[in-house]
């Protein structure tokens, strides 16, 4: 079953890319989201500009930009790292908007109350706003992460080897060596694998949303 071995390798690489993008984009996304609610107009506009730019550009273009322009600027990156950077830029911009929405949905009287208690701005954020905002943003952030996992498949456009690419390789190999056309079956299998990964996430997201409502 050499064919399954190729697909399995691809799946592992897809999962690896997804997990690293999830970690990076959560960190950056939360940071940018908090910056968007800052009182300093410079910080706010930088963060707004970041999310507007990377939400406005098609993810395909962001990937190409990272892949082609970083090397010309003297930074050597392979396609895996480029995909990681490009997807994280895009996903963190999306996450930042959800984070900002959640923070702004916390009533301002709570901020006033914590000020009256003598908490500093940072403490208010850490102990009052973020714990509540976190619970509110979780459903939409999980939805976005499922989107991110699906979008990692685009990394094959810049030459990254992932589940979809290994499917292509497998199809070509069978075509050349055995003369059989198995594209329909293999792509169906790929669809099923992605569904198995992403469906539980969207169920979880919906369950949490119901719990909140």
């Amino acid at each position: 079953m050499a064919g399954y071995q190729i697909l399995l390798d691809g799946l592992v690489r897809t999962l690896l890319l997804s997990v690293s993008c999830i970690i990076i984009s959560l960190c950056i996304g939360v940071l940018i989201g908090i910056m968007q609610t800052s009182k300093q107009s410079v910080i706010r506009s930088v963060a707004k500009g970041y999310s507007e730019l990377f939400r406005g550009l098609p993810i395909v273009i962001t990937l190409f930009l990272v892949f082609f322009i970083l090397p010309e600027a003297g930074i050597e990156v392979n396609s895996y790292i480029s995909a990681m950077i490009g997807l994280s830029l895009w996903s963190s911009a999306n996450i930042s908007v959800a984070v900002r929405g959640a923070i702004q949905s916390i009533s301002p009287t709570q901020v006033e109350a914590s000020m009256a208690l003598g908490l500093s701005g940072l403490q208010t954020m850490r102990y009052v706003i973020l714990p509540q905002a976190f619970r509110r943003m979780l459903p939409s952030v999980i939805g976005l992460l499922s989107n991110l996992i699906q979008t990692t498949s685009l990394s094959i456009l810049i030459g990254n080897l992932d589940l979809l690419k290994s499917a292509q390789i497998l199809i070509e190999r069978v075509e050349i060596m055995e003369g059989g056309a198995i594209a329909f079956q293999v792509y169906s299998l790929v669809l099923i694998v992605y569904f198995i990964i992403c469906y539980p996430l969207s169920l979880l997201s919906r369950k949490m949303e119901k719990k909140l409502a």
Binding site: L154, Y187, L191
Partner: peptide
């Protein structure tokens, strides 16, 4: 909603 758009494209075009 739970499968990538690119796989839909490949499925229809190559599959």
């Amino acid at each position: 909603r739970n499968t990538p758009l690119l796989v839909h494209v490949f499925f229809l075009y190559f599959g």
